[in-house]
Amino acid sequence: MATRAARDLPTEEFILPGSRSCAACGLMLTYRHALKALDPGKTLVAVPASCMTVLHGVYPITPVKVTCINTPFAATAASASGLVAGLKAIKREDYTVVAFAGDGGTYDIGIQALSGALERGTNFMYVCYDNEGYMNTGTQRSSASPAAAVTSTTPILAKAQHKKDMIRIVEAHRIPYIATASPSFPLDLFDKVKTAKDIRGSRYLEVLAPCPPGWGFPNKDLIKMGKLTVECGIHVLYEIREGRLRLTSRSLVLAEKGRKKTIADYVKGQTRFKKISKDQIDALQQWTDQRWEEFLQRHNRG
């Protein structure tokens, strides 16, 4: 049963106010609603060096009410595997182990540990909050940054390559549950985390978390930007269960009614695309359309 209204969500907050995250942080909103869907008394979180560590605060205080372990950058999934094995050894398998890593810790640095954990079929949930760059250290290029984005390591000629299709890599491990979500659709995000919590085996969630300072848009437009990523089709909301893809939320509506927003609308409001040329917009549009068609075909096949 899908959650329909904000008042259906749990009231209790698991992140105390006054955290170190930036104002209008997409990750913060993601984490806030994800923790509501999990049972925080029975959850262990593994976090690598990332924006998430900043959010978790400096010793001896943390704003998060959930048990969390800070891990080395490359070892998020490996540490989570260790936690799962440890819980099994002391017969406390009712706990959920969740790994929260950024796109740097998933697409680039953590991919080896993640692939290993997925191959072993470790009983854990992996959430990748994708803000399309190494935002914590100052907006460096990652393999999740979109083509034509100016980052601090591609300052003159913007990034030339398209974003890596991480979901395809994850899907190749044939895990039971894969989903994408967006903090601009918190009810959809909440439902997906809740669904993933009750499934045994490896679960992978990817959340596109808009980053106002990194992408270069005003703080107040956080939700609008998240919605725009879905509406222009650069981020598609879906879930894959046992190989079957199903579009959800706004993407499902777009599949029925057609997309109206284009990449030109999307890049307009962000300073990281300040150097984008007409050809690059067309290339990005073509890449987006091609992916969208693939998703639509898979969705219709059922």
């Binding site: 904000a6 992140i15 106010p17 104002a23 913060m28 806030r32 918190p186 703080n219 107040k220 939700i223």
Partner: peptide
């Protein structure tokens, strides 16, 4: 729902915890 820091109360009349509100403006938008 959309406040990233969760400083807005759920009970009516709604109140904003101004000690911790970072002033991003998402709520107003």
């Amino acid at each position: 729902l959309y406040c990233p820091d969760g400083v807005i109360s759920r009970e009516f009349p709604l109140e904003i915890d101004l000690e911790y509100c970072k002033g991003c403006g998402v709520c107003a938008e």
